[in-house]
């Protein structure tokens, strides 16, 4: 009889054991490193508390790096969003055969994951100096991308074209369920009430999709903002991006101020956290709509 309450009391203690490894690991591999950066960003070289690092973010090439990152991210989020939406519409609602849809979805899974070094190389082989398209245009039309169009892949535009390769399918993958969520009855109800196809899209389908589209574009923005490998492989760091500047900071304290490097990292995290939060909020809204 007396053993019973003891055992009952021991059970809840035991139940905590299951999550202890997880939290220990999370603290070691995630908490400590991030904590180090956070604290470091508020310290000067002597370890005193300061906000100087954050105001120093406006000095040197740092603003250019952030502006470039934001510009590339906005461009690829917008273009990737629009193109991804169009392709998703074509595959899901355009009346194409069903097998095309599953093929495109599977391919998008691969393409959205085909990033980093191999992706950068693949585009160099396509529109780089010796690339297939470059060669084709020059040999067929005598057109030089670099000389006549002023285009080089080792530029911001180049980075954007390459990023689109994973942005576009990611949009497709995330927006597809939202398009599936458009119920046939809504279209029929709109038609029944006298709406044209345009009026249906303008008043019903598009407003219902808008939170998902906007949210996913914001996700794409964050996705592009955090990218490093692709741009680094492509340009070797000649184009200033926030992630590339941070990468240089890891290799060595080029700013002669570690705190400033940490502040840069924090700046990036804040923008990322903001975009993910907005995405989550918008996603929640559209889920609420689609459920009712």
């Amino acid at each position: 009889m007396t053993a019973l309450p003891l055992r009952v009391r021991r059970r809840p203690t035991f139940s905590w054991v299951g999550v202890v490894p997880f939290f220990l690991f999370a603290i070691a591999a995630l908490g400590l490193p991030l904590g180090f950066l956070v604290i470091g960003s508020f310290q000067d070289r002597e370890g005193n508390l300061t906000l100087q690092n954050f105001s120093d973010l406006t000095t040197g090439t740092i603003p250019i790096a952030f502006m470039n990152s934001i510009e590339v991210s906005i461009v690829t989020a917008l273009l990737g969003g629009i193109l991804g939406f169009l392709l998703a519409w074509a595959v899901i609602m355009g009346g194409l055969p069903g097998w095309i849809r599953s093929a495109v979805m599977t391919f998008s899974g691969v393409a959205s994951n085909f990033a980093g070094v191999p992706l950068a190389l693949a585009f160099v082989f396509t529109i780089g100096n010796l690339g297939l398209v470059t060669k084709f245009l020059f040999e067929t039309f005598g057109l030089s991308l670099r000389r006549d169009l002023g285009f080089t892949i080792y530029s911001k535009t180049g980075i954007e074209i390459v990023y689109l390769y994973f942005q576009f399918p990611l949009m497709l993958l995330i927006i597809a369920p939202a398009l599936d969520g458009l119920r046939r009855e809504w279209r029929e109800a709109a038609e029944n009430l006298g709406a044209s196809a345009f009026q249906y899209w303008r008043h019903v389908a598009f407003p219902i999709l808008a939170p998902s589209i906007l949210g996913t574009m914001i996700l794409l923005f964050g996705n592009s903002l955090g990218a490093q490998a692709t741009a680094f492989q492509l340009t070797g760091g000649t184009i200033e991006l926030a992630t590339i500047a941070i990468g240089r900071q890891i290799r060595g304290d080029v700013l002669r101020n570690p705190g400033l490097g940490y502040a840069m990292a924090m700046g990036l995290v804040v923008i990322m956290a903001f975009s993910i939060t907005v995405y989550t909020l918008l996603q929640r809204r559209s889920e609420r709509w689609l459920r009712s």
């Binding site: 809504w186 029929e188 109800a189 709109a190 029944n192 219902i208 689609l290």
Partner: peptide, 17 residues
């Protein structure tokens, strides 16, 4: 959309937005 016939659906089909 040119029939002037009103329809009520089993699933209501109200526009959620």
């Amino acid at each position: 959309n040119q029939r002037n016939v009103g329809m009520v659906f089993q699933s209501y089909a109200l526009f959620p937005n």
